[in-house]
């Protein structure tokens, strides 16, 4: 690991100037960044630890929304009564990620910014435009079973690895950031960028901008859930995952939120499927049609073509389960 300096400031006003110069990274739980540093993929000169900034609170705001500090640990958030009660999809998504030990360390802010698990991104002997811009992409004709089918480009097909972000996408979460130029709010769905020709640039944060909180709008009345499909029962990234909230009245879909993980280059809000479902019949045929419509835009490679079928099947299964469970209750 390349040597680096380490600073742990006690207030944001000190953290941001320290975190702005090139070669500086903010450090949360370190469950992804430190691994990447060990692998030599991230080589920061300076680390600014943000766990002393008192960003670890969870509070209900007067309008009923929930403000989650960026340094809140994943396990704390998953277990929080307000999250378990009002945002079940988020709690389930968090609990499906990583392992108990990692969730105890990982922070919300770090989870938002975690980097892909594409094996070629990790292989120093491989071409990867995300790791080394302009070097090419060995995943295109290599092992791409884990790679994305939605939002891909000729430069990069790496899948976004987060479970939490998929749930946040479905919940219309808003990311609060503070930087040298002040504070601003970014809808979660606009935080991550599609790879295009610059897969190395993964989000819309500016230099020095620090994620301070994630705010969830007031709880949905709809029932929600998260389903993750993977190669082993725990400690594996999603091959496909579905975050969904569904409300049904008189056999019609009155409220729908749908987002996908494991299949997109960013947390994938399934707007097309939502549009088709809303106001339509709440039956399996409609679910399947909507799923197929969402995946119609998929671009597959030899190893990941199955993900289209898998994602469709998982969407249908999740909506079917939510309907059976008495959506709207």
């Amino acid at each position: 690991m390349k040597p680096f300096t380490y600073l742990k400031p006690h207030d944001i006003e000190a953290a941001i100037p320290a975190g702005t110069p090139p070669g500086t990274k903010y450090l949360g739980g370190g469950t992804n960044l430190v691994d990447l540093m060990r692998e030599g993929i991230e080589q920061p000169d300076h680390l600014v630890d943000i766990t002393g900034l008192h960003l670890d609170g969870i509070e209900e705001l007067p309008d009923g929304s929930l403000r989650i500090g960026a340094a809140v640990r994943n396990s704390t958030l998953a277990a929080h009564p307000k999250v378990r009660k009002g945002y079940r999809v988020l709690s389930e998504a968090l609990l499906s990620g990583a392992s108990g030990q990692l969730r105890n360390m990982a922070t919300v802010g770090g989870n938002l910014l975690q980097r892909t698990r594409c094996p070629y991104f990790y292989s120093d002997a491989a071409a990867c435009n995300k790791r080394q811009p302009g070097s090419g992409c060995d995943a295109l004709d290599g092992f791409n079973r884990s790679c994305a089918v939605l939002g891909v480009s000729d430069s990069c097909i790496a899948a976004h690895p987060s479970d939490m972000c998929v749930a946040l996408s479905a919940l219309d979460a808003v990311v609060h950031v503070q930087g040298p130029g002040g504070t601003r709010e970014i809808p979660l769905t606009e935080l991550h960028r599609l790879p295009g020709d610059t897969p190395n640039i993964e989000n819309t944060l500016e230099a020095g901008e620090l994620v301070t909180a994630v705010v969830l709008p007031p709880p949905l009345s709809a029932r929600s859930t998260y389903r993750k499909v993977r190669d082993r029962a725990s400690y594996a990234f999603a091959l496909a995952s579905v975050a969904a909230a569904l409300e049904i009245e008189d056999d019609k879909v009155t409220r729908i939120r749908l987002a996908l993980g494991g299949v997109g280059t960013k947390p994938w809000r399934a707007y097309e499927a939502e549009r088709l479902l809303l106001g339509g019949p709440a039956d399996e045929q409609a679910y399947r049609r909507a799923a197929e419509a969402e995946l119609a835009a998929a671009t597959v490679r030899a190893g990941n073509a199955f993900k289209v079928t898998l994602a469709e099947a998982t969407i249908v299964a999740v909506l079917r389960d939510l309907s059976k469970a008495g959506a709207g209750s």
């Binding site: 002997a125 491989a126 004709d141 092992f143």
Partner: peptide
Amino acid sequence: LIDHRSGRIIN
């Protein structure tokens, strides 16, 4: 997973 071009183990 052994990359069929490079012979590198990538996992």
